[in-house]
Simulated assay, not measured.
Amino acid sequence: MGIVLGPNRYGKAETRVVRVSRGADGTHALTDLNVSVALSGDLEDTHLTGDNAHVLPTDTQKNTVYAFAKQHGIASPEAFGLLLARHFTASQETITGARVEIEEYPWNRLGPHSFSRDGSLVRTASVEVSGATETVFGGLAGLTLLNSTDSEFSGFIRDGYTTLAETSDRILATAVDARWRFAAPEAEFNAVFSAARDAMIDAFTGTYSYSLQQTLFAMGEAVLEACPDLTEVRLRLPNKHHFVVDCTPFGLDATPEVFHADDRPYGLIEGTVVRED
């Protein structure tokens, strides 16, 4: 039985690029990205013998990100990722596959050329090009949501290790990580992002929740209903637990108004909502 090289890829991770677009009226637009490139193809020799003849340096990949941001601008993370992935696979004979993953950090406008960072929300995109196959994912991370009521949790399995009390009224909080797949590699990416984000927020806000799993499905379903360009939504929802603080020892009433926000351990709910053919 021999030992052989398995699947492999290499690239330049986390190239930070900030693009300032200068309008004729003096108004600036700001795009802030973190770009990671990974390439695959005819790369066996570099692993087995150290022959780098088929290797496009990762420093070149970094420079390409900067040059393309200058030359082409950044219409959206998805479009920029497609531009890069198509370039690497089309321009290099030894490179047959490219994956580009992008995080975009949103900024709020304060004036013509002034901005403030928009909280913890990060827009995400992932593009893979291999031969004639192109796959595009959009998404977001760190969308923190909280309902202070309209959430229950009861009727669950109880065994010898169960101490959790059932509740008919609790805080439901999460930090959403979502990833959605486009049916085709061309779409109105910015419009889809806004519609998907708003649909998730509306579903979270408007769903009376008996479990975070139920809320997850409601959010995914809302995204697919709002965005016909999407075929599936993958959601990762940590349950950000809030526990009532008992203030009765201090001579105060038992109304649940003060909570302890506990960061770990936490429940983690994951699921994919898919559009059927």
Rank of each mutant, 00 (worst) to 15 (best):
6 G>D: 13
6 G>A: 09
10 Y>V: 07
13 A>T: 02
20 V>P: 02
23 G>P: 03
26 G>W: 02
31 T>K: 10
33 L>Y: 11
34 N>H: 01
38 A>Y: 06
42 D>S: 09
49 T>D: 01
49 T>I: 05
58 T>D: 05
58 T>R: 04
59 D>W: 04
64 T>P: 00
64 T>I: 09
65 V>P: 09
69 A>Y: 02
73 G>P: 05
78 E>T: 02
84 L>H: 08
85 A>M: 04
86 R>P: 08
91 S>H: 13
92 Q>S: 12
96 T>A: 01
101 E>H: 09
107 W>C: 11
109 R>G: 07
117 R>V: 03
117 R>E: 11
119 G>Y: 12
120 S>L: 15
122 V>P: 13
136 V>Y: 12
151 S>L: 14
152 E>N: 10
157 I>M: 07
157 I>R: 12
162 T>P: 04
163 T>P: 04
165 A>F: 07
166 E>F: 03
179 R>D: 10
190 N>K: 06
196 A>D: 08
206 G>V: 05
206 G>W: 09
207 T>F: 05
217 F>Q: 11
220 G>H: 02
221 E>N: 15
222 A>G: 05
223 V>W: 05
225 E>V: 14
226 A>P: 07
232 E>V: 12
238 P>T: 14
240 K>Y: 00
240 K>F: 06
250 F>S: 09
256 P>E: 10
260 H>M: 09
267 G>C: 04
268 L>F: 08
268 L>E: 11
276 E>H: 10
277 D>T: 15
